[in-house]
Amino acid sequence: MAARAKKPLLALAFVLIGLGLSACANKRGGPIPYDVPDFVAPDAAKPAPPGMDYRLAPGDTISIIVFRVEDLSRDYEIDPSGNIAVPLIGSVPVAGMTTPEIQQVVRERLSERYLRNPDVTVTVKNAASRVVTVDGSVRNPGAYPTTNEMTLVKAVALARGTDEFSNPRRVAVFRTVKGQRMAAAFDLTAIRRGQAPDPEIYPGDVVVVDGSRNRQVFRDLLNTLPLLALFRPW
C-alpha cells in the first residue's frame, strides 16, 4: 500500500518540477541588454564578392585550396558562431578576418603537426550580404534571404517558428556596427502580443533564439564579442 501511494506522489513531484523548470526557462535575462533605445542599422553590406581587404562574416562561403591535398581543398561556409570546420585542424574562428589572415592561420595550424610549408590559398566564393541567419531553438535553423521589410517576427517565421525547447522571451540579434560585432536582446512574446515593437532585421544579422538545448550557441556567439561591443542603453 505504501509503495502504491508513493507512485502518484512521485508523478506529481515530476510534474511540478517540470512546470518549475519551464517557468524558469521562459523568462527574460542574460548578459545581453533589452530595450536598447538606439538599435542602429548595421554597416552597409559590400555589394559584390570582395577583394583581399574584405572581412568575412557568418554565412559567407570561402574556398580553401591546399596544394596537393585534395581532402582539405574545398568550400567552407562560416557558421553562425563565425567558425569553419577544417579536417585535421578542427574549428577555426574566421569571422572578421581577411582572406590573407585566414591563409596564415590555416598554414600555421597545418605546419604544427601535419604538413611542412603547406601552400594555402583562400578566396571568397560567396559573400552572403543579403541573408539573415536564424539559429538556436527554432524548427529549421539556417540562412534565409532577406526582404526590404524584414522584421524579427518574420525572420523567426522563416525558420518555421520556435521549437518546444525555446525561450521566446530571450532572443538575441547580433550585427556589425562601425566595424564591431554587437548584440541586443528582444522579448518575442511581448512583440507577438503587441506590447513591444517588432525590430527591423537587416542582411547579415544573426538571430538566435534561446532554449534549453541551445545554450552553447549563445555562449559561442558571446565569446566572439568584446565586452564593450554589446548594445547598451545610453
Rank of each mutant, 00 (worst) to 15 (best):
F14W: 10
V208H: 03
S63M: 13
A185P: 05
N83M: 13
G204D: 06
L21E: 10
A85M: 11
P93N: 09
L12V: 01
F186R: 05
M182Y: 02
L228F: 13
P58C: 08
P8H: 04
P42Y: 03
G194A: 12
L16Y: 01
M52F: 08
A45E: 14
Q195S: 15
E112M: 09
V40P: 00
S137F: 09
G142C: 07
G30D: 02
D53P: 03
V124I: 15
V206H: 02
Q104L: 11
R113H: 08
V36C: 10
P50F: 10
V105G: 01
A196G: 07
P233G: 07
K6D: 00
Y76S: 06
F165K: 11
I78R: 04
L16V: 12
P118M: 10
A48T: 14
V66S: 02
D163Q: 04
V124R: 11
V86W: 05
L188S: 10
R28W: 02
L227F: 12
I84L: 07
S63L: 13
S81T: 14
S22K: 14
T146N: 05
V207R: 10
L9A: 07
P42V: 03
A196L: 13
S129N: 15
V120L: 10
R109F: 02
I84G: 02
L9E: 01
N117R: 14
I89S: 01
V207Q: 07
A128M: 09
R68K: 15
C24S: 14
V105M: 11
A128W: 12
P100R: 08
Q103T: 15
Y202T: 01
V173C: 04
T189Y: 08
V69E: 15
A143P: 06
C24M: 15
S22L: 15
D135T: 15
G59M: 07
L16I: 08
G30I: 03
A172N: 13
Q216C: 00
F67M: 13
A23C: 09
V132Y: 03
V105H: 03
L230D: 05
V171P: 01
L228A: 14
G96E: 01
L16A: 15
L16W: 01
E77D: 12
V66H: 00
I17S: 13
R116C: 00
T189H: 09
G194D: 07
T99S: 07
R219H: 11
G82I: 02
V15P: 00
G211P: 03
V209M: 12
A127N: 08
R116P: 00
S129R: 14
A11E: 03
V105S: 04
A5Y: 12
V153N: 08
P8M: 04
L56P: 00
T146F: 03
I191A: 05
G18A: 12
I17Y: 07
D205M: 04
A23T: 10
V138M: 09
T133N: 11
G194Q: 07
V132I: 10
Q180G: 04
V177K: 00
